[in-house]
Amino acid sequence: MTDAHHSANHPALIMAEVMDEIDAARAFVARDDSFDSAQALRVALRRLRSGLTLFRPMLPPDHNKALLDEARWLAVEVTRLRDFYLLWQDTLTPARVALPENDALRALEERVLARIKSERTQLRALLDGERVRDLMARGREMSDPDFWRPAAQSREKLESLCIETLELRLNQALKHGETLKRLDSQARDSFRKSLRKLRATAEFTQSMFASKKTKAFLKQLKKLLDSMVAARDASAVRDRLEDLMHDMEEGSAERHIAQELIKAKEAAVGLDHKRLQKLWRATVGLPLH
């Protein structure tokens, strides 16, 4: 699997880097009001969850569940803010440029901006709170190699764990991607999530056991995932607008414009299924390790 003369990194080092990413992203959110700051924290938390899942057999048995639950909780809070930023920047701003005099659209934008302000304030308070401090402290425990089970010292066991998990993730993705042309939005999201998990596992594996084959696989997998970003963003916009519509009067102009924006966003996705299938075949045609 590995290239010649390469020694594996201890997973404690890998997870210490992940916790550093989360710390940096927390500081980014604290000082910056933008999509990028929320997205950086979202990605860092996703890497934490992926690392905890991959390395579960190497960690104390009572460690993972509590930390995973807290990471999932915080990721939900971060993603909600991130998606409201996305709705405002990528959907509402272009619509307001095209229809500057539309009162319903203006009201919807004001509603979204107020929600962004509220979500941002709430998230910053959470990031400074005891619950997140406890999460960070538990995560930092993994930075000490002595915290890990003795198996984490074994190159052979680590490599075996990575290979087994890679194969499991690939099989899950294969199952979701069997009928790409017929995937509805929900099934497409499941396929994308399985690809994302596969990518995270491959990235951790590459960090510990550098391999030209894994590097090539990751490069091709990134192309596939990039082709699905528009579909994911359309789902996020739909979810956030449907959330806001709960507070709108039935039949109101604002509710109508929100519904039209959902339709327009989803219609614009225009997934090229032939290209998607081609990228998928090219990805699974490469060796994982």
Score class of each variant (00 low, 15 high):
Glu141Leu: 15
Arg124Gly: 02
Ala8Val: 07
Lys219Val: 10
Asp128His: 13
Asp144Gly: 06
Trp88Lys: 06
Arg182Trp: 09
Val29Cys: 07
Leu127Phe: 09
Glu260Ser: 13
Leu126Arg: 15
Arg255Tyr: 08
Asp146Ser: 15
Ala25Asn: 08
Leu225Ser: 12
Arg149Pro: 03
Lys181His: 14
His5Lys: 04
Thr121Ala: 13
Ala253Trp: 03
Glu119Asn: 11
Leu158Trp: 03
Thr205Tyr: 07
Gln153Pro: 01
His10Tyr: 10
Leu92His: 01
Ala27Thr: 07
Leu158His: 05
Leu45Glu: 05
Arg275Asp: 05
Leu135His: 04
Pro57Phe: 01
Lys263Glu: 14
Glu250Gln: 10
Asp189Lys: 08
Asp184Phe: 08
Asp90Gln: 14
Arg31Gln: 13
Val229Thr: 15
Arg42Asn: 10
Ala95His: 03
Glu203Asn: 10
Leu261Gln: 03
Lys265Val: 04
Lys278Met: 11
Phe55Trp: 13
Arg281Pro: 00
Glu21Ser: 08
Ala27Leu: 11
Asp23Leu: 05
Ala216Ser: 12
Leu99Trp: 10
Asp69Lys: 12
His176Ala: 14
Leu126Cys: 09
Leu170Lys: 14
Ala258Tyr: 06
Arg155Ile: 05
His6Thr: 14
Ser227Pro: 02
Leu276Gln: 06
Leu180Met: 09
Leu87Met: 13
Leu81Ile: 03
Leu67Val: 13
Leu105Pro: 05
Asp146Thr: 12
Leu135Phe: 15
Val112Lys: 05
Leu105Ile: 03
Leu67Asn: 04
Glu203Asp: 14
Ala4Met: 09
Glu266Trp: 02
Arg140Ser: 05
Glu249Arg: 12
Asp144Asn: 15
Arg275Ile: 03
Leu135Lys: 06
Ala27Met: 07
Asp226Asn: 15
Thr121Asp: 15
Cys162Lys: 02
His246Gly: 04
Arg255Cys: 11
Ala104Gly: 08
Val229Cys: 07
Leu108Trp: 00
Asp33Met: 08
Ala25Ser: 14
Lys157Thr: 10
Arg106Cys: 06
Arg169Leu: 03
Ala95Met: 07
Gly270Leu: 13
Ala71Cys: 08
Val237Thr: 11
Lys157Glu: 11
Leu286Asn: 02
Arg115Asp: 11
Gln259Ala: 15
Ala202Ile: 01
Val284Glu: 01
Val284Lys: 03
Gln89Gly: 00
Leu87Thr: 01
Glu141Asn: 13
Asp36Cys: 05
Met228Gly: 08
Ala44Trp: 05
Asp247Asn: 13
Leu67Lys: 02
Asp233Tyr: 06
Val18Cys: 01
Met58Ile: 06
Thr179Gly: 09
Arg155Ser: 11
Arg196Cys: 06
Leu170Cys: 07
Ser154Tyr: 02
Val29Thr: 00
Ala24Lys: 14
Gly251Met: 12
Asp184Ser: 12
Ala107Ile: 00
Leu74Asp: 00
Pro57Trp: 01
Arg169Lys: 14
Ala25Pro: 11
Lys215Tyr: 09
Ile116Cys: 04
Leu86Asp: 07
Pro94Ala: 06
Ala125Gly: 11
Arg240Thr: 15
Lys117Cys: 03
Arg138Asn: 13
Ala40Pro: 01
Asp247Phe: 10
